[in-house]
Amino acid sequence: MKKFFLLSITVLGFTFASNAQEIADNAIGLRLGDSDGLGAEVSYQRALGDNNRLEVDLGWRNSNNYDAVKLTGLYQWVFHLDGDFNWYVGAGGGLASFSGKKLLDNQNETAFFAAGDIGIEYSFDIPLLLSLDFRPELGFGDFTDDLDFDIAFSIRYQF
């Protein structure tokens, strides 16, 4: 009986330790960064496995000079650091649409871009995930034909 009790405690301990390294099935929130001048993005993450996930971000801007929409999709690999800290790296791309007004001579353009992503995240005991990431983007179009760097802070609700 004593051995069974110790074995049960050991198995429960390994179960809780392994759960601390798993990523949430879903997370939704805001990614607050430059985003090529679009500012905040609505961000959604979906787990595809124990250590892989898909992230989709939608940013938009409606101003006096231009309207813009940007959709980004990234496949990420998540690696455990320590405790509730993880780091991740990803690759993907997206689509951006730009519509100029007034001063920009009504220019319209749709462009594609390739993106990478590397960051660190902390998962709280409550369903809160905070992260800081760096995302280089290489654009293919007139207004996005360059290499941009975006650093952002994200806050997401996990479910």
Rank of each mutant, 00 (worst) to 15 (best):
G83P: 05
F98K: 01
L81D: 07
Q107Y: 15
G94S: 05
Y88R: 06
N86V: 10
L104E: 02
N106W: 04
G100R: 01
A91N: 02
G90H: 00
Q107W: 08
G90F: 02
D82Y: 13
D105G: 04
D82L: 12
S99L: 10
F85Y: 12
L95M: 11
D82R: 11
F79E: 14
Y88T: 07
F79P: 00
K101T: 03
G93L: 01
G92I: 03
H80V: 09
G94D: 04
A91D: 03
K101R: 13
G90S: 05
Q76N: 12
S99V: 09
Q76G: 05
F98N: 00
F85D: 02
Q76W: 03
E109Y: 00
S97R: 14
N108M: 09
Q107G: 05
S99Q: 11
F85A: 08
G94V: 04
F98S: 00
G92T: 03
K102M: 06
L95E: 08
G94Q: 06
F85T: 10
F79V: 12
G90T: 01
Y88N: 05
N106H: 14
G93H: 09
N108S: 10
G94H: 03
N108L: 05
G100S: 00
A96S: 14
W87R: 02
K102L: 07
W77P: 00
Q76H: 08
L104A: 04
T110Q: 08
S97A: 15
A91C: 07
K102T: 09
F79L: 13
L104S: 00
G92D: 03
Q76V: 05
L81P: 00
F98Y: 15
L95P: 06
K102W: 11
L104K: 02
T110S: 08
L103A: 13
V89C: 12
Q76P: 01
G92V: 06
A96G: 10
L81F: 04
D84I: 04
D84E: 12
L81I: 13
S99D: 14
W87K: 05
W87F: 14
D105M: 09
G92Y: 04
K102I: 01
A96D: 07
Q107H: 14
A91W: 00
T110G: 04
D84Y: 09
W77K: 15
L104D: 03
A96M: 13
L81V: 12
G93D: 06
D105S: 11
L95R: 06
S97E: 13
N106M: 03
S99T: 10
W77Y: 14
S99A: 11
G83L: 04
K101P: 06
E109A: 01
Q76F: 03
D105N: 14
H80C: 04
D84G: 11
G90D: 01
F85K: 07
S97Y: 14
N108W: 04
Y88L: 07
D84A: 15
G93F: 05
A91V: 15
A91K: 04
V78P: 01
V89W: 12
H80W: 10
K101L: 08
A96V: 13
G83D: 07
H80K: 10
G83H: 00
G100C: 00
D82W: 11
W77Q: 15
F85L: 15
G93P: 09
